[in-house]
Simulated assay, not measured.
Amino acid sequence: MKRFFPILLLAALAAPVAAQQNTTDVARAAAEALEAASTRLHNAQTAEDRIAALSETLHAYEDGLNALREGLRRVAVRKTTLMTSFNARAGEIGDLLATMQTMERTPTQLHMLHPTGVVGTLRAGMLMGEIAPALDAEAADLRAQLQELNDLELLQNSAATTLEQGLAGAQSAREELASAMSNRADLPQRFTEDPIAMSLLLTSSETLSAFASGLSQTIDTELVEMDTEAWNRMGRLDLPVTGDILRRFNEQDAAGVRRPGLVIATRPNALVTTPIAATVRFVGPLLDMGVVVILEPAPNVLFIMTGLEQGFGAVGQIIPEGTPVGLMGGSSPDGDALLMQANSGSAQNLSETLYLEVREGQSAVDPAAWFAAH
């Protein structure tokens, strides 16, 4: 997509040679993914196709924006390096310019004359033959650095528009996705819910553990049996959201609290998807944990995700792998704020946290048993 072309420029110009390939490849892959997702979205005929295409589009926007932020961060670092070098060499550069200006004003023949006579003049000529190329090389290096600094300035100035376009596109994809998910009616239903039992469970549960343990009482009528394919995928599932793991199973936090799950730092408004086909057991606000999504990928196994701002799906639905189940909260910064973050050396804004817990029967187990969480 044309709107992501500046990402490639930023990556190529801002990164050192050793890092260029990786950053540029990421940017190029994001642009190609956005192009492919846009084509798929245009050709989507069913609700499932449209939702899949919107999910791909949103992921592509997120990857592209992240690549752009990384490029801008590298631009800021490179600019700082150049300016520090210029400031440190201010006296040396001034002397070089003064010397070159003097040499330009002085006739060439006078450079070679020496008051000691012919031998001194010959020695001076030999010395000038060595000095002149070194001065030319130094001047060429200085010109190249000044040109690079000018190019980086231009890239930073043009990046704001690119960022705004990417942020607007991502937000539009989120809104379309939420609308498509709320209107979806083509998913199979595994069971019907007992609304009275669910209401009683919601009002009586004081902990997440108590609520999860009581979910078995909220099923009214079983319609189909569960697929047990999930057991064959244990230990190889992707995390439901892109981010960094802050704390692992039973790892103590700063307040000394241990939780039997993963705490994942992620970007504002990040897309959360199901890592495998599963039945939706609960979607909605619970206690003080924001929106909670509970999936059942296999009999008596629950994936519990808390901290979302928006949840998708209806209780009893069987959803395919990769289906969006919600969005994280938070406020995505505008283009100017992202530029400021990049200038301060920050490439990502992982301000939101998703809590992921896995339960087998009545007990919480280490999510590492199910997820390839490195």
Rank of each mutant, 00 (worst) to 15 (best):
P260N: 13
L302R: 10
R174S: 07
A314V: 11
A369L: 08
E296C: 06
L113A: 12
V283F: 09
A29N: 08
I51A: 12
T242K: 03
S55M: 04
E206C: 13
T99Q: 03
Q20S: 03
R40F: 14
P115V: 03
S85Y: 04
P299L: 09
A144K: 07
E222P: 14
I319E: 11
L41W: 06
N157R: 11
L163W: 03
L8K: 00
L96Y: 02
R247M: 11
A44M: 15
G335M: 09
P6S: 05
L96C: 02
M234G: 10
D95N: 06
L96E: 03
T218C: 15
G166H: 00
V119P: 02
M112N: 15
S204G: 15
A210T: 14
L122W: 14
N250H: 10
Q362G: 10
L41Y: 03
G290P: 08
L10I: 09
A90H: 02
L10H: 11
Q348M: 10
R69N: 13
D95I: 06
D95M: 06
G307H: 07
V280R: 05
G329H: 10
L13I: 01
M328C: 08
L13G: 01
A159P: 02
M340F: 06
P240L: 01
N349L: 14
S351H: 10
A134G: 07
T102L: 06
L215K: 11
A19T: 11
E32P: 00
A212G: 14
D366M: 00
L177W: 00
R184F: 08
S182C: 04
L201H: 02
T273V: 15
S363T: 12
A132C: 14
E92V: 01
Q147H: 13
G330Y: 05
P260C: 13
A134P: 02
Q147N: 10
L295S: 00
Q45E: 15
I51E: 05
L8D: 00
S344A: 06
L149A: 05
F191M: 08
V119Y: 10
Y355D: 12
P268L: 02
E104G: 08
E62W: 08
F371Q: 04
D63H: 14
P16C: 09
H42T: 07
I219K: 15
T121A: 11
G256L: 04
A210D: 14
D253V: 05
E222I: 11
W231K: 08
T218I: 12
L187E: 04
P333Y: 13
L287W: 11
T99P: 00
V17Y: 07
A90I: 04
A19M: 12
N343M: 12
A30N: 02
T116A: 09
N157Q: 13
H114R: 02
N150I: 02
D63Y: 08
V26D: 02
P333E: 13
G64R: 00
A18R: 09
P260Y: 14
A52P: 09
A364T: 15
A347Y: 01
P107F: 09
G290Y: 09
N269Q: 14
L339S: 08
D253G: 13
A12C: 12
L200M: 04
P107C: 06
A212W: 05
G335L: 05
